[in-house]
Write a protein that binds this DNA or RNA. Structure first.
Length: 674
DNA sequence: AAGATTGCAC
């Protein structure tokens, strides 16, 4: 194996740069001597980490000699593995190679790209002892290397020690802080920079705006926006996109839209920022229509776009839409990078298509913690407690370190499936993994104890919490009190909720239901009066079904629907048939703000029943029916749907605010426990 | 010759 490779280069350092860039692409085995037209360099044989890539080995090494143009080397410089090429420093020390700015910058850039801060430090110390020890450009690159690698203390130290700084120096540090979630540190630098008489530019502003978006309010961001206008950078596409993103993060979608519309030059990022803004705000329809608009305007959706769109489909439960877009991604030949894959599997998992989610999971290039957590979310929300526990144990077995989200998922799965002992066990297990329980974990445990009927233990648990209980904690207890009809404790829990979150109608309704089931009409009226006085309005209940890519919305006793007569007739037909097989209407779940005689009528046309009747009219026999609801499904509807699933022999899936009910053959996945 | 914007699980 003594091969000879000839590389045509214009200078020695170009050769080394070419090799630095191209080495992972070219097969140059050990003991190969490499020569250039400037002579032979035996030292290059020590480059042992050259990797052969497929098909090229023959070309380079199969013959005794081949000629590679250095431009070609550079063009093929796709960096796959991460040799940082530090041996070049030895060559410089030995005088075989003359260092120059580009060489150092290339080395530093590689360190930055692969996050190799240790190697970067070696390069840094080498530079300190070289003729470039006072070179501003090289020091800016070093500073950037530290900042990008998250070594902000090193970056700061270098910044403070640098005798001369320019715009780039300041901007590199600002962007370092802003990219590492240190918005405050980034923003204080801005006035200091102005004080030194330096002019910010588009690079500075995009970083400052990113940092401003992480502040608790929009005040600072607006100020930075004013500076953008003053310096004339508001029309730059980076600055503009950052502005759109910043306003969108403060939920100021309209202002984001105004900035967006005013942008002379837009790019995919500008669109993505706005689409993500709508998605975060829960405005699925807006996000999807922007997604379509983006393509009409001839912008190709990117990974970021798909990620937002799948996330929208997941949260609105638009499985059909999501599948369609998934097909679109496959057709366009786009690769499933991890974060798109994660949202995609989350979408399937959350829609209850666990099988599809599993398929995506297996196809992911790499299963990250988020991927595992997304699967767990799916299991949890569909009441698949045992599967969730198995999945979690599998994670631990193969050495994936769980985080607080993982525990929240598994705890919530235990709670939804009534796995009391398992839930308590995993709560204790958090300590072993050194994860401090957050208030959401405490909420789940209160829920778990409460559902199991251990109300006193739940109360004791709340009293012994090391952190201040929030409204959510008391709401969990209140919900359990309603389930187990415990009036005294329910009223006590409700008091705490009213104090901490006075405008939520949910707890008022729950308390009133508790009183009603005990026949305490006076107390029911009192809660009603309280709601009126404090201006709390009950959220109108509604249900919707997605049929052939269209969403059909229903409200209780819907008389505005064009097909209301057909729907009502269908429900009456169904209602009669399920009564024959054992369904007994349960009026105790009707909110008692209506007259007694109206109750039966109100009950009969709850929105989920109308949606179900409509779906039965419009979908082929045997296909699953998916209904979504904005509040919890009531006991009577739950019972009725169980009978319907048996009567028509179909799977009916109802998604309410925090879980799914899978109805099949007369029973529900929640085992009447929700 | 160095510095910039957009995403996923609760």
């Amino acid at each position: 194996m003594n091969k000879h490779i000839v590389i045509l280069c214009t200078s020695k350092s170009t050769l080394y740069n070419a090799i630095l860039h191209g080495k992972s692409c070219f097969g140059i085995p050990n003991k190969t001597s490499i020569s250039t037209r400037f002579g032979s360099y035996a030292t290059l044989a020590s480059f042992t980490d050259f990797e052969a890539s497929e098909g090229e080995e023959e070309d380079c090494c199969g013959s005794s000699s081949c000629i590679i143009q250095d431009k070609d080397l550079l063009r093929r410089s796709q960096i796959r593995n991460s040799p940082t090429g530090l041996h070049v420093l030895d060559l410089i020390d030995r005088g075989s190679l003359e260092a120059n700015r580009a060489l150092y910058n290339n080395l530093l850039k590689k360190c930055t790209h692969f996050g190799k801060v240790k190697e970067g430090r070696v390069v840094h110390s080498h530079i300190v002892h070289s003729q470039f020890k006072d070179d501003l450009v090289i020091h800016n690159t070093i500073l950037n290397m530290y900042a990008k690698c998250g070594a902000l203390d090193d970056a700061r130290k270098l910044f403070d020690e640098m005798p001369s700084k320019d715009m780039v120096t300041w901007t590199a540090l600002i962007s370092g802080y802003s990219q590492n979630d240190r918005a405050e540190d980034a923003l204080v630098l801005f006035p200091q920079m102005l004080h030194f008489g330096l002019q910010p530019n588009q690079f500075t502003f995009s970083s400052l705006l990113k940092a401003s978006g992480a502040r608790p309010n929009d005040k600072h961001g607006r100020l930075v926006h004013a500076f953008c206008l003053k310096y004339g950078y508001d029309s730059n596409v980076y600055v503009g996109s950052s502005l759109v993103d910043m306003y969108a993060r403060f939920n100021l979608i309209n202002e984001a839209r105004v900035v967006f519309d005013g942008l002379v030059s837009k790019n995919e990022v500008s669109w993505n920022a706005l689409i993500a803004g709508h998605a975060r705000k829960g405005e699925g329809e807006h996000a999807l229509s922007m997604f379509r608009e983006m393509q009409r305007a001839d912008f190709k959706p990117t990974h970021f776009t798909y990620s937002s769109v799948f996330s929208v489909c997941a949260s609105t439960g638009s499985l059909e839409q999501g599948k369609w877009i998934h097909a679109h991604v496959i057709k366009s030949g786009g690769k499933l990078v991890s974060f798109v894959g994660n949202t995609l599997l989350y979408m399937y998992a959350k829609s209850g298509s666990i099988e599809d989610a599993k398929k995506v999971f297996d196809r992911l290039v790499k299963q990250e913690l988020v991927s595992w957590n997304s699967m767990l979310t799916g299991y949890a929300q569909h009441g698949l407690g045992k599967e969730s526990v198995q999945w979690f144990e599998e994670m631990l077995r193969i050495g994936i370190e769980p985080n607080h989200v993982t525990f929240l998922c598994v705890l919530s799965a235990c709670s939804h499936a009534g796995l009391l002992d398992e839930g308590l066990y995993y709560f204790e297990l958090m300590k072993k993994h050194v994860i401090e329980p957050q208030v959401s974990h405490y909420v789940t445990i209160v829920d778990l104890l409460g559902r199991a009927g251990l109300l006193d233990r739940a109360l004791k648990f709340i009293r012994e919490m090391p952190i201040e209980p929030t409204a959510a904690v008391w709401k969990a207890l209140l919900g359990a009190c309603r389930m187990h009809k415990n009036m005294e404790l329910g009223a006590y829990a409700a008091e705490h909720v009213f104090e901490l979150d006075p405008y939520d109608s949910g707890p008022h309704v729950l308390l009133s239901n508790i009183y009603a089931s005990a026949g305490r009409w006076g107390d029911v009226a009192k809660v009603r009066r309280m709601m009126k006085e404090s201006g709390v309005k009950k959220e109108p209940a509604c249900s919707w079904v997605e049929i052939e890519n269209a969403v059909h919305l229903f409200v209780a006793n819907d008389d505005a629907h064009p097909q209301r007569e057909d729907i009502y007739r269908k429900w009456e037909e169904i209602s009669g048939k399920i009564k024959e097989i054992g369904y007994v209407p349960d009026t105790s779940h009707v909110l008692l703000f209506v007259d007694q005689h109206e109750r039966e009528v109100k009950l009969q046309y709850h929105s989920e029943k109308l949606a179900l009747a409509f779906a039965l009219l419009k979908t082929p026999p045997g296909s699953p029916i998916r209904i979504k609801k904005n509040i919890r499904v009531c006991g009577d509807c739950h019972s009725a749907i169980k009978f319907v699933s048996k009567l028509v022999d179909r799977e009916i899936i109802v998604r309410d605010t925090n879980r799914f009910h899978h109805f099949h053959d007369g029973s529900c996945s929640c085992r009447d426990y929700w």
